[in-house]
Each structure stands twice: as structure tokens, then as C-alpha cells.
Design a protein around this nucleic acid. Structure first.
Length: 270
DNA sequence: AAATTCTCCTGAAGGC
DNA sequence: TGCCTTCAGGAGAATT
């Protein structure tokens, strides 16, 4: 379930614990994530220092002296900074050891990934074709409008396509379309520039609010109970099927679009 | 080329 | 209480 705000909150939460630290070793209890965790990390990592903790889309980069660890949390992954000797629980697949502390990857559904690259991670196969960051100036209404030209895809599927824009997952796609008053199934090429301007603004707004929210609710990355999951308290339509719309009180509808549940108000969104 | 479908996995929820 | 089935979900890969 981590969406971009959760990943960014994770990044800023673990960063102060890792910067400048030297990796002593790695413990891999379960290498079978989305892709196998490279066993070569056991030789590569020891002695390397963490120079930066970055995020691109929903990927995290641990920039080391010579190479980069790429981590994706999938939909159930989380990272914690814990005492290295603390007892691992079920689904605690990997520990990166930093002296008395460790960075522990927990991922029940194993849709996540932990990879290694010695070249620029932005040139990595999984990264290089990604679209712009939603919070960057490169992403705006004009960009979306030009992208939508001749495309018949439902707008919700377009904004969830990582080649179009990264970091907009199922939850925030529904939320931003509600705030922009756009029906999630509307064809992309049947939306005016002006409405795309609004949509881009709402995407930025919804993500930025959630990041700020996350900064206040998820600031403890050193304890198991530090996580509040995703920021459900801010959601206006997601998961609210049949509940009254917060604007007009019409029941919120749920409909599957592109294999994913979409929540919307049929009265407010067109 | 663009759009859709499939796939990995586990835990939660629902049915009986 | 407990077993079985169904479903959700990120996003790359495969297919149409």
C-alpha cells in the first residue's frame, strides 16, 4: 500500500539514521521478493558508506561509496531502523547491518524488491523510462494535456501509468480525480486543457498534503508501532463505497477500472 | 503503438 | 470454531 507519500516519509524517516554510516553486512532470510535479492550483496556491501538516501518514483536509492541499493516496498513493504540484535519476526526478509543498528525490510506479500547497481541508478532498466515526478515543475496540466492527445485510455489509468507520471497509485488517483471533479472512466482525449490544469494541481496537492501528514504521523522509524499505514484520515472517496459524498451527500460509487477499484461521486465527477 | 490482461504473494473477510 | 474461497493491490511482463 505504500504510495509516494509513504515512500517519501520512509525516506526522510530513515535518512538521518543511515547517512554517513558504514555497512558491516547484510542478512538475507528470504531472497525471493519480486526479483531475487542478489547474493553478491554479501560481498559488495561490507565497508561501504551511505552517502545519500534518495527517492525516485516509489523506489528508494541508498547511494553507497561504490554503487546503489535500489529498494521498492511493493504494496506491503516497510523499513525500520532497529537494534541489530533485535529478534526478527515473520516476513522480516533482510537486515542491513550498521554496527549496533540495522535497517530491516519487512514485506509480508513480497511484491517489493531489493536490487543492486554499480552504474547510475537513473540509468537502471526499471528507472530510466519512468515519467516525471508529480511534484516537479515538469509535471503540469499542459504536460498531461499533450500526453492525452489521441489517447482513449480512461483518465484514471493514464495518471496511474508510470510512464506518464510516477507515484500516483490507486488511492491517490481516486482522490485527485474527485477533487478535480473528473470521472475516473472519462476518456483522456475528452478532457479540456483547463480541466487538466486543475487535475495536475489536485494531484500535487493531494500528494503534498499526504507527505506533510506523514511527517507528523509517521515520524518514528525505530519501533514496530511507528507505522500508521497509509494516511486514511485524509481520504475523501477511497474506500467509502455507499457513504455520502462530502460535497453533495450522493452515495459514493465503486467501479472496477483497469482491474482496480475506483471510488467516485457520480454527481460531482463528470 | 496503445491498451488490456496476467502475474507474483499473503492476510483479511466472507460464506457455510 | 474452522475450513475454504475470494479478493486486493504495484507495476513489470506478456498478450492482444
Amino acid at each position: 500500500m505504500p504510495e509516494l507519500p509513504e515512500v517519501e516519509t520512509t525516506r526522510s524517516g530513515i535518512e538521518p539514521h543511515l547517512l554517513g554510516k558504514t555497512i558491516q553486512g547484510i542478512v538475507i532470510r528470504q531472497p525471493r521478493l519480486r526479483w531475487p535479492i542478489p547474493q553478491s550483496l554479501k560481498q559488495c556491501l561490507p565497508g561501504q558508506q551511505v552517502l545519500a538516501v534518495e527517492r525516485r518514483a516509489k523506489y528508494l536509492f541508498l547511494r553507497l561509496t561504490q554503487g546503489t541499493v535500489i529498494i521498492h516496498l511493493g504494496m506491503s513493504g516497510s523499513l525500520r531502523v532497529l537494534p541489530a540484535k533485535s529478534q526478527p519476526g515473520k516476513h522480516d526478509h533482510v537486515d542491513l547491518i550498521f554496527g549496533k543498528q540495522c535497517l530491516r525490510l519487512h514485506d509480508p506479500r513480497r511484491f517489493g524488491a531489493l536490487l543492486w547497481t554499480v552504474v547510475d541508478p537513473n540509468k537502471h532498466k526499471l528507472i530510466q523510462h519512468l515519467g516525471p515526478e508529480p511534484l516537479s515543475s515538469k509535471f503540469d496540466g499542459h504536460y498531461l494535456y499533450h500526453l492525452s492527445c489521441n489517447r482513449r485510455i480512461a483518465i484514471k489509468n493514464l495518471i496511474m501509468d508510470s510512464k506518464a507520471v510516477v507515484g500516483v497509485g490507486n488511492i491517490y488517483a481516486s482522490e485527485s480525480l474527485f477533487r478535480a471533479g473528473i470521472h475516473p472512466a472519462r476518456q483522456s482525449n475528452r478532457i479540456a486543457l483547463k480541466r487538466y490544469m486543475l487535475l495536475a494541481d489536485k494531484i500535487k496537492q493531494v500528494l503534498q498534503e499526504a507527505i506533510i501528514q506523514g511527517g507528523t504521523t509517521l515520524k518514528d522509524f525505530q519501533h514496530e508501532d511507528g507505522s500508521a499505514g497509509y494516511f486514511a484520515q485524509k481520504l475523501q472517496v477511497y474506500g467509502r463505497e455507499n457513504a455520502p459524498c462530502l460535497h453533495c451527500e450522493h452515495p459514493i460509487m465503486r467501479r472496477v477500472i483497469g482491474q482496480r477499484s475506483s471510488f467516485y461521486c457520480p454527481n460531482c465527477q463528470h
